[in-house]
């Protein structure tokens, strides 16, 4: 196991490459999920506001 992790002494190079890949992918997915949630929440708020206005008038 240790032998695998050390990658023949090149652990730093190998794992930082794969590590960065995983970090970038995680960051992108998180950002995308947040963006979608934000826009859905925003649209929901707009809709509720409009409905409130309509019921107020009526």
């Amino acid at each position: 196991m240790m032998e695998f992790l050390s990658q023949g002494g090149y652990a730093f190079y190998v794992w930082s490459c794969y590590g960065l890949g995983i970090v970038l992918i995680t960051v992108e997915i998180t950002a995308l999920r947040r963006r979608q949630r934000t826009i859905v929440a925003q649209l929901g708020r707009l809709k509720r506001m409009r409905e409130a206005e309509v019921s107020h008038e009526g």
């Binding site: 992108e28 997915i29 995308l32 999920r33 963006r35 979608q36 826009i39 859905v40 925003q42 649209l43 929901g44 707009l46 809709k47």
Partner: peptide, 28 residues
């Protein structure tokens, strides 16, 4: 990821249309 992003972009652009409202109700 590009499909995820395009979904957000579609919602941002088409906000206020009937189908978006219906879609949101479905998702809710």
């Amino acid at each position: 990821t590009s499909f995820m992003r395009v979904r957000s972009i579609i919602l941002e652009r088409e906000a206020g249309t009937t189908w978006v409202n219906e879609q949101l109700e479905l998702e809710a």
